[in-house]
Design a protein around this nucleic acid. Structure first.
Lengths: 194, 194
DNA sequence: TCCGAATCGTACCGATCGGTACAGTACCGT
DNA sequence: ACGGTACTGTACCGATCGGTACGATTCGGA
């Protein structure tokens, strides 16, 4: 009951996400946000809590939409297919013309002031978690004979994620999709075969 | 003539560099700076111009000290030695306990508000320039038969720099020196031989 | 010794930051 | 129809932002 809200929550969240993605957590002001989201300041606070909670919700939305392909990647049958799906997926997501360049997980807050430290730690945590998921998947692949027995799945996962993070920086710096593709192709050429 | 300044310019610059490196351009306030540099606000402005010029001067100092090894790397005799020197150098610089983790060129400003855009562009420009220098060095290596004739030096340079940027993100996220070393080792294992 | 020049510290500027008090408004259930 | 409830806009809060005016201070040169 009560007066119904006049905006769509996910639309507003998309507006916030776009801004945080392009300008980072600290580089985005509440005035930027309210303008892009098309809502007033009190509406923002009533609906999303505060700037930090808004960022976390935008990040969740980012994860469940733009990063959905990562879950798909883990289901691929071979380690090579998993990594291929993952890296080409990152290349696409980081250079999607519909969204800002690069990766929200890095642009959001790579380095920041003390008051944004919780945000930075959240992003670090998600990166670590993502790497761990890939590591477990590669472990599984090795166990099933899909990767050489003498390789280190955790090391391979770290290598792949390092590449992905580097690609995100390249994309933020203006690298195009083809440039990222060629990097992925080089990586896959050197991928260990069973 | 006039009253002599009571602080050392390079010492002050080192203080500013440390802060910009850890917290980024926008995450560092003038109050942070004056405290860390041990000078007052008007002294800062009289000596370094303004916050943006101070950042550029700190960046120059970063380049001429912490990044000196990159010039050394280009002088190595083989392409493999060049890349090895470069990547291990980055790994060391990004995890040097004397300095903040990661890379000033990324932590400084990966994503930012409009008013810091010139700073971001400066960093992008330096990354592109660095990649171009490596590309020319690898071109040279290919011409002298040190790299396979069918490889693309620009592509290889982009690959190496992508890895370096990814390592910087890993270091900022808390990765240790050994973790970065193992990534470098993996890369060199796959490096094309003449 | 005294003047010009340069640096120093205090105290301040307008603008913007994230966040909120409060009254008006539009809807629901009764 | 009417009260309770939730959202809306205006107008504001103290704190901090980057940047500066100004007078006191300390030096070299004449």
């Amino acid at each position: 009951m009560g007066r119904p809200r006049e905006f769509d929550i996910d639309d507003a969240l998309d507006g916030a996400l776009d801004l945080f993605w392009r300008k980072g957590y600290e580089g985005t002001s509440l005035s930027d946000l309210t303008q892009a989201m098309g809502i007033t300041r009190p509406s923002l606070y009533a609906t999303f809590g505060n700037k930090e909670e808004l960022f976390r919700k935008a990040l969740d939305r980012y994860d469940s939409t733009c990063m959905a392909f990562t879950r798909e990647a883990m289901k691929q049958p071979t380690a090579r297919a998993v990594v291929s799906h993952l890296l080409y997926g990152f290349a696409d997501a980081q250079t999607d013309p519909v969204h800002p360049s690069g990766c929200m997980g890095m642009n959001g807050a790579l380095a920041c002031s003390e008051e944004a430290e919780p945000i930075k730690q959240e992003l670090v945590g998600r990166r670590v978690a993502g790497e761990a998921v890939l590591g477990r998947r590669l472990e599984e692949a090795r166990a099933s004979g899909d990767l050489p027995a003498d390789c280190d799945p955790a090391e391979l996962a770290r290598y792949v994620m390092t590449l992905a993070h580097g690609m995100a920086v390249q994309a933020t710096s203006g690298a195009g999709r083809e440039a990222l593709y060629s990097i992925v192709a080089m990586t896959l050429r050197a991928w260990p075969s069973a």
